[in-house]
Design a binder for these strands. Structure first.
Lengths: 218, 218
DNA sequence: TGTTAGCTTTGACACAAATCAAACATTACT
DNA sequence: AGTAATGTTTGATTTGTGTCAAAGCTAACA
């Protein structure tokens, strides 16, 4: 959250964020069609967000972790248009959106902050579209792994070790490929000595090799 | 724009929107790396927005037409992260973002409106991700055509006739396929009597057939 | 502690879309 | 009006990823 507030102002802002909610692994934080009331700031845990077609196919839209905001999709129509599911036992701050709007009218810094969060999500999705539209399986998985370690490292975790919270199928859905292709690509990177893989555990041995795969797009 | 303002209020809001800018076909409204100052409301014409990789591959992010807003990507980092190019001679309203922020603090209706515009863009991109991640060439093109006529119809144009403002290559970039595949898929729909195609001119003969292709996802 | 259910890996084969190539149509320019 | 540049269509072939299938691994539960 942005700085530069008086004690009294901070108190008001803290009030928006005081309600907590625990979400067990596999449970829905909100679902497609639910009435929109609040944004959620993830305190601990990991979520996936996804949309589904009538015939039951799922597209994972993103994986969100501590400090990230989910629920922005609900603002347009006052109802959510995607599902947010906890991939492990998690906790979120419930932030009623009307409170956020009231306070951002009072505090320009907060207003700016909210705008940046939404814009950041738009830019993120632009990059995913590039991934899905232009890249091959290896490039997609390399980009995915690099993005993941980078975010984990920013949160104080290892630069090289990941314990995946999602299945091969969920990774595949996010990256627009089948679970078998995800598995094969993991095995290929492993054979080449770029990573070590054991089920959900991944260790990045040669990050430069991943970056090269990601940049050196055919 | 939202209603329910006094004459005086309307005047203030009008002031934000008073600067116009003409953009010739093929010219850049803004480019990746440009400093962000303003959002742009399209008055006339059509734009494409796109991102590019170092090696020069382009991913079209969207096609925007009258009444739609471009530039939201610039808010996060105070600089744009995509390109907006006019596909025909166009005119936009230049809306300095700091003015928008000032006024939305004054007028809750405007604030809400701005939030909805950003959320709508997020939801739109979610749907494109579904398209790119889960659908086959025919489904993608069917979805594209249906979306296009729907938006044109909402602006008073025909429900069945389209004059495409973009090349096969640009359509392909948007839909994650090669221009040859776009062309072949057009030909296939044409052979099946679903549409008539002559270069940039497309007439939709059986909209239900397109909807069926779009929904009846393998 | 054995059993089941869920996830992952690997193999063989099929297929949708990419690639390469050439001809054709249209538009812009001199 | 003629010519060049750009965009489009269509064909032949290749290829990356999907599909189908089976076996292996892991974790949860009775």
């Amino acid at each position: 959250m942005p700085l530069g507030f008086t004690e009294n102002e901070m108190k008001k802002i803290d009030d928006v964020v005081k309600t907590r909610r625990r979400v067990k692994q596999g449970d829905l934080l909100f679902g497609d069609g639910d009435i929109f009331t609040s944004l959620y700031a993830i305190r601990t845990g990991v979520f996936k967000t996804s949309v589904s077609t009538e015939d039951g196919r799922e597209q994972v839209i993103g994986f969100q972790m501590a400090g990230e905001i989910v629920g922005l999709d609900g603002i347009v129509n006052d109802s959510h248009s995607c599902n947010a599911v906890a991939l492990e036992d998690s906790e979120v701050c419930v932030m009623p959106f009307s409170n956020i709007e009231d306070l951002s009218r009072e505090f320009p810094e907060l207003q700016r902050h909210v705008h940046k969060i939404m814009s950041r999500e738009i830019v993120r999705e632009n990059k995913v579209m590039m991934l899905l539209g232009n890249m091959r399986a290896e490039e997609r998985l390399a980009a995915f792994l690099l993005n993941l370690v980078q975010r984990l490292h920013a949160r104080g975790f290892s630069q090289s070790e990941i314990v995946l919270r999602m299945t091969r199928e969920e990774i595949g859905s996010y990256l627009g490929m089948k679970l078998e292709t995800v598995s094969r690509t993991f095995s290929k990177f492993s054979d080449e000595g770029i990573i070590q893989v054991k089920q959900r555990y991944v260790r990045i041995i040669q990050p430069e090799a991943l970056k090269k795969i990601f940049n050196l797009q055919a």
